[in-house]
Design a protein around this nucleic acid. Structure first.
Lengths: 114, 114
DNA sequence: CCGTATCCAAGGTGATACTG
DNA sequence: CAGTATCACCTTGGATACGG
């Protein structure tokens, strides 16, 4: 997302927001967690097109930014559960409006894909 | 933005929306045009941190997706004016909500930038 | 003034194999 | 089950110079 070197005068809120929803699967992951798919294995099953590594990178970043947090249950097999923080929940309206807009404008945007 | 090879079952509205606001300067450009900075030279002056080439790439893409359109005035020196289409205007609320969210959550997101 | 071509650096993503 | 390391690839962004 090439957003790290933006000088201060252009580091607007959009840059900040894009750090959260800008990744290829970040918004998708946030949506899944908000819907109760809180275990990594569930995410992997839903997102078979991607490797666990990429999902984990996104999870680490969302964690770092305070969007999600996790509970590690002791014992074997391992059990980890992610959940949205309050900050994370505040992102849902953004994802929602983006999703609705995209669904309503799929034609003009997706068709010229040459 | 690596959004081109997303399989259909995951090609949700978010992917579509990110094609519009996902680029490093796309949302910024849309904002500028909506505020009346409609000539390329104005955009270049506002965005001196970037080369004209990058701005033009974004403009071409926004044009391709029907977000902006342009009027080419004949004569020399050349004069071009961009404007938002109706579709483009419908993007403004998304940019607005992202910008506000980002401004309100700058701390937790920006600080862990290690 | 406007736009593009070329070359290049860097970041994001993907496949696999591996450890605890 | 959960997570990481290494590899290679593709996309994006950036600097410069040039043509309409």
């Amino acid at each position: 997302m090439y957003l790290k070197k933006i000088p201060d005068e252009h580091d607007c809120g959009i840059s900040v927001a894009l750090k959260i929803v800008g990744g290829k699967w970040k918004a998708w992951i946030i949506n899944c967690i908000s819907k109760g798919m809180i275990r990594p294995s569930q995410l992997h099953r839903e997102l078979t097109v991607t490797s666990p590594r990429v999902i984990n990178i996104h999870l680490r970043e969302l964690e770092k930014y305070g969007i999600i947090d996790k509970i590690v249950h002791p014992g074997l097999p391992l059990k980890v559960e992610y959940f949205l923080t309050e900050t994370g929940k505040s992102v849902l309206p953004i994802i929602d409006i983006m999703e609705r807009w995209g669904d309503n404008h799929r034609q003009p945007v997706n068709e010229p894909d040459n």
